[in-house]
């Protein structure tokens, strides 16, 4: 479980996060949504330790990350898997080497054992027979799947995804969404996803946190989202006619 309390972060005079508190439970896909510039990426980067908060705490199963010793921090880092928006695969390495990289750096497994694990996770993300390909030879969706494979190869307790669907066609986006949800459920990972893809929100959002101007403006499930009267959420989520109609239909059916 990840607990965030009163998180503040700014850059110079610009205050980006203004006291966000939230709890993310294991085995659930937790979504952070909000407009561009609402602080989603800074929030996610603070969770994974790329930004140091100015105020507030982030605890991982009761362990506060800013109080870690060097060894504890190293250990915690290995419990984290991260899928970056642009996949962030190492260009010069093959798919196999990319996925094997954390194993080479942090385990004492033999080459065969590492290869077995790599093949297992690549199989899990439905990417067989791509071991020797370079990232540039893969489609956007395949690159995302390699990134997910690399993120889960160390059996993480926490999985973070920054806009996992950006740049993907709707069908591939659903495949990626479902894959993340299945992995979350299967391995009981605490997953936090940063997105503004409303299809993802409706499809896999077990808990949704809506950010506005660096503050938490709303939180709930995707069902709650249909029922909410929160103006900020309604104007953001139901800005398209399609989602407006979906909401109207949902409300009619549940009356």
């Amino acid at each position: 479980m990840i607990e965030v309390k009163d998180l503040h972060k700014g850059f110079g005079d610009v205050k980006v996060l203004k006291g966000i508190s939230a709890t993310f439970h294991p085995g659930k896909t937790n979504l952070i949504i909000g407009q561009s510039g609402s602080g989603k990426t800074v929030f996610l980067k603070s969770l994974i330790g790329l930004h140091t908060p100015e105020k507030g705490t982030i605890s991982f199963d009761g362990r506060i990350n800013t109080q870690f010793t060097q060894d504890q921090k190293q250990q915690w880092r290995q419990e984290i898997g991260m899928v970056f928006q642009g996949s962030a695969l190492f260009d010069s390495q093959t798919v196999e080497d990319n996925v094997m990289f954390p194993l080479k750096m942090f385990t004492t497994k033999s080459e065969d054992e590492m290869l077995e694990r790599v093949n297992f996770v690549l199989n899990r993300v439905n990417l067989e027979n791509s071991n020797k390909k370079l990232p540039a030879e893969l489609s956007g969706g395949m690159q995302k799947r390699v990134a997910i494979a690399r993120a889960i190869v160390m059996n993480p307790k926490y999985l973070f995804c920054d806009e996992p669907n950006s740049g993907l066609d709707p069908r591939t986006a659903i495949v990626i969404d479902n894959l993340i949800q299945e992995i979350t459920d299967e391995y009981k990972i605490t997953t936090v996803i940063n997105t503004h893809d409303m299809n993802s929100v409706m499809e896999i959002g077990e808990k949704i946190v809506f950010l506005e101007n660096g503050k938490k403006a709303w939180e709930g499930t995707s069902d709650d989202m249909f029922k909410t009267d929160n103006e900020a959420v309604v104007s953001f989520v139901y800005s398209s006619n399609l989602f407006k109609k979906v909401r109207e239909a949902y409300l009619r059916e549940t009356k």
Partner: peptide
Amino acid sequence: TEQIDALEVMGI
């Protein structure tokens, strides 16, 4: 392309 961030997140 965030590859350096990816290394840092891994603890490298």
